[in-house]
Design a protein around this nucleic acid. Structure first.
Lengths: 211, 211
DNA sequence: GAAAAAAAGGGGTAAAACCCCCATGCATTT
DNA sequence: AAATGCATGGGGGTTTTACCCCTTTTTTTC
C-alpha cells in the first residue's frame, strides 16, 4: 500500500525535485505539490486530497510552515507533518515542533534519511535526528518564559536596525532620547543582549526586521 | 550525445533532488555531485571529471559560488556555470554574473525552465531570464565603481557582525585594536557607512555574512 | 478608588565607537 | 632612486552607547 505524500515549498525547482525523489521511494506516492500553505489548505477541502504525510518548508510567502502546521494539527490531526528547512535557528525549530511537526529535516540530509524519516513517521508517528532530539531535551531545562515585546519596543527595534542614532530614533518616534534608552535597556535585559549589534541580529533572526 | 552536468549545493537533499531532475532530461547526464566549491575543484583535477555545465548554488561553506565561479572561469573557461540560488539580491546576482556565470536561475523556476536553460547554455553559450536581462541592462547605467574589499577587511567584517567589541575582534585576529579601527574607518569611507549597524546591514545584504 | 504595573523621562559615569592625522616597513612600480 | 600601495600600528580628541539607580505620569487591574 502506497502512502500519500504532499510536498509544500515555494521554490518550484526544489518542490519538483523533492517530489521526484519521493516518487522514487517504493512505498510512497506524491499526491500533488503546493507552493505555500494557503494552496495546501485549499486542496485539503476535497477529502481525497488528504495525504498521510506533508513535507513542509518553513519559509514561505502567504502562509508559512509554522502557521500552516498549526492549522493542520487542529483540522487534520491525522496528517503527519515533517518540516524541511535550511533554518538551523534553534528557536525556529522549537516553534515548528511546538506547532506539531512530527519530524524536522535539515535540507542537507541525504535522500536515504528522507526515506527513513517518511517510513518512521508512518510507523512510529514521529522521526527525529539526534540533533533535534538533543535540542528538545535541552529546551525542557531552559525556562522559555516567552519573552514578550511591547508594541512600542518592536517599533523601536525596527528603527534600531538602521544607521540612526538613538537621538534620531527618539525624534522619529516623538519620544525623549531617555525613553528610547529605557526601551533599549529593558530589551537588552529581556533578550540577554550586549549591544546594538546583538539587537540587530536578534531582530533579523526572529523576523522583526528583514534586511 | 549526452552533455555532462555537475551540481554543486551544500544542501544534500536539494543536491540529490536536482541531480535526479537533470538525470531525467534526455540529452543530459550527471557526472557527480559536490557539496561545495572546494570539493568541485578537487574533482576537476582529473580530466575526465570535467563537465560541460555546472549548476552552482551561491551560498556555500568553504568556497562559495561566486569565488568558485571566478576560479572556474580562469582555469576552465570551457565550463559553463549556471547559478542556482534563492538569493534575489541585485548585487549578489550581478557579482555572480561578473564572476562569469552564463545563466542565473532562481530556485523557484520550473523544471522545464531548468531544461531550457541547460539546452540554451550548451547551444548559445548563455541563458538569461527576462528579469536577469533587465537587471543587466539596468546595471550598465549605474556606475558601479566596484568597491574592492581586502581579504583581511572581509574577515574583520564577519567579526563585526557579532556582539564582540573591536578590542575583542583585534584579539581574535591577532592585531592591534588600532589596526582594527583603521579597517573600520577605511571601510566606512569606501562604502559610505555611518556606523557599525550600517556595516552589519551591508554585510548581510551583500552575502558577506549570513545571520 | 486604591494599588500595581507600565510607560515616559532623568542624572551621572565609564566604556565603546567614531574620526581626525601620522609613522613604519615592505613590496611593486616607474 | 623615488613613488606608490598597502598592511600594520599609534596619539588624541569628540560623540555615542551602555549601564547603573531614580522620579513622575499614565494605564490597568482588582
Amino acid at each position: 500500500m502506497e502512502n500519500k505524500v504532499v510536498v509544500v515549498d515555494d521554490h518550484t525547482l526544489l518542490l519538483e525535485a523533492i517530489g521526484g525523489l519521493v516518487r522514487d521511494f517504493e512505498n510512497f506516492d506524491v499526491l500533488y505539490l503546493c507552493k505555500n500553505g494557503q494552496e495546501l489548505l485549499e486542496k485539503l477541502k476535497i477529502p481525497k486530497n488528504i495525504p498521510d504525510v506533508v513535507l513542509m518548508d518553513i519559509n514561505m510567502p502567504l502562509l508559512n510552515g509554522i502557521e500552516t502546521t498549526k492549522i493542520l494539527n487542529e483540522k487534520f490531526p491525522q496528517i503527519k507533518v515533517i518540516a524541511l528547512s535550511v533554518e538551523e535557528n534553534e528557536k525556529t525549530i522549537l516553534k515548528m515542533l511546538r506547532a506539531g511537526a512530527k519530524g524536522y529535516l535539515m535540507k542537507d540530509t541525504k535522500k536515504e534519511i528522507l526515506k527513513e524519516a517518511l517510513n518512521q513517521v508512518i510507523e512510529k508517528g514521529y522521526y527525529h535526528t539526534n540533533t533535534i532530539s538533543k535540542l528538545l531535551i535541552g529546551s525542557l531545562t531552559k525556562d522559555e518564559t516567552a519573552v514578550e515585546l511591547k508594541e512600542r519596543e518592536i517599533e523601536f527595534i525596527e528603527h534600531a536596525c538602521t544607521e540612526m542614532t538613538y537621538k534620531q530614533i527618539a525624534e522619529k518616534m516623538f519620544l525623549s532620547p531617555k525613553t528610547i534608552e529605557g526601551y533599549r535597556d529593558s530589551i537588552y535585559e529581556k533578550l540577554n543582549l550586549k549591544n546594538r549589534i546583538g539587537l540587530v541580529l536578534y531582530a533579523i533572526r526572529n523576523g522583526l526586521f528583514t534586511p
